[in-house]
């Protein structure tokens, strides 16, 4: 318990350091997530819309989940050297698979009847995508983004070994910050991951069409199965 109160003291006493490192951590995670979104959402949605490439979309998730984050960051170091860019690339590689797969599964899984009805109403493929498939796919798509966000925030602690900054600098340096600093920084990382999940969950709920609320958890369960089939 002494360690724990020491950690809280550390958080209070070294709040400027922690704030600095937290900001670095957030910038790095946010940038990685943003780039991953720009890549994975269009590709996943497009493939899902065409009902093509299920092999790629599903297996990418499995391989992506299997990638050890330390190995990916280490490889980035070997190829790209120290610094922000290397870590950013590594985190993007880790963030893309869950988003892409969920985007694909979400759009691909929109009920054929709904799409058929939209087509019968004279909607163009673009309108079908924007007004039928995307709204229905949103909850599941967001579930993927949440998974990715939590994973990126946690993995970003490893950025410190590659000169990418962030809260990992404290976690990897027990010699300077002692066990209190270690626990304090660990608490902040956990809180960040938790907050990211909560915030995105809020966005997810807000974006879910009213008629579909309450079905979200069932849908989430579906994708785990689809992803692991």
């Amino acid at each position: 318990m002494n360690t724990f109160s020491g950690a809280l003291e550390f958080i209070v006493d070294r709040r400027e350091l922690l704030l600095d490192k937290t900001l670095e951590h957030l910038v790095l995670s946010g940038a990685a997530l943003a780039v991953a979104l720009l890549i994975a959402v269009p590709v996943g949605v497009f493939l899902g819309h065409l009902h093509r490439g299920s092999f790629l979309a599903i297996n990418l998730a499995n391989v992506g989940r299997a990638l050890p984050s330390l190995a990916v960051i280490a490889l980035g170091l070997g190829f790209l050297g120290f610094g922000f860019t290397n870590v950013l690339v590594a985190l993007v590689i880790l963030a893309v698979p869950p988003i892409l797969t969920n985007a694909y599964v979400a759009v691909d899984g929109v009920e054929a009847e709904a799409v058929e009805a939209a087509r019968g109403m004279g909607m163009t493929p673009w309108q079908i995508l924007r007004r039928v498939e995307l709204p229905l796919a949103l909850p599941l798509l967001f579930a993927g983004i949440r998974t990715s966000a939590v994973y990126v925030v946690a993995s970003a602690t490893l950025a410190a070994i590659a000169g990418g900054g962030g809260l990992g600098e404290i976690l990897f340096n027990q010699a300077s910050y002692r066990v209190e600093g270690l626990v304090g920084a660990a608490l902040v990382v956990s809180a960040l991951a938790f907050a990211a999940d909560l915030a995105l969950g809020g966005v997810q709920r807000a974006l879910t069409p009213r008629g579909m609320r309450g079905r979200v958890s069932a849908l989430e369960a579906d994708v785990t199965r689809a992803g692991t089939a």
């Binding site: 946690a154 602690t157 990992g168 976690l171 066990v179 660990a186 990382v189």
Partner: peptide, 11 residues
């Protein structure tokens, strides 16, 4: 599960 890996190993 929410404890960062590097932290738990050291703790």
């Amino acid at each position: 599960y929410t404890i960062p890996g590097i932290a738990l190993f050291q703790l």
